[in-house]
């Protein structure tokens, strides 16, 4: 099957594999530890899946808002590979998203 038109990169591949992994884990959890709805600080009943969805959606918007407000200046270069791995400030948005996901899973 010809897949050149899909233009895969290892970065997007990794991203989708992580996403698929998270979905698989959540599905397995749903099978072996069935979830119940609960009402959190938003006063809406949410299940684990709902909280994952909210976290992912928030993560997407946090990244967009970060790029809009802060841009993506390089912070540092990690000594990986020949040219080094440039770390931009967008990774801070990723950390914020991860933290927020924790908050959402705990309190929403």
């Amino acid at each position: 099957m010809e897949t050149a038109w899909m233009a895969w990169t290892w970065q997007t591949g990794l991203f989708f594999m992580l996403l698929a992994g998270v979905l698989t884990v959540m599905t397995l959890l749903a099978i072996f530890k069935p979830e119940t709805e609960r009402v959190g600080v938003l006063r809406i009943p949410t299940t684990r899946g709902d909280r994952l969805f909210i976290s992912l959606l928030c993560a997407a918007f946090i990244h967009l808002i970060w790029i809009y407000l802060m841009g993506s200046d390089p912070i540092t270069t990690l000594p990986i590979g020949e040219e080094g791995f440039e770390v931009t400030s967008v990774w801070i948005a990723s950390l914020i998203s991860l933290g927020l996901a924790g908050v959402i899973f705990r309190w929403v």
């Binding site: 233009a7 895969w8 970065q11 997007t12 989708f16």
Partner: peptide, 12 residues
């Protein structure tokens, strides 16, 4: 599959 392709295109 098309949506994943769109994501791939968006970084290239």
């Amino acid at each position: 599959v098309p949506l994943m392709t769109v994501v791939n295109y968006s970084v290239q």
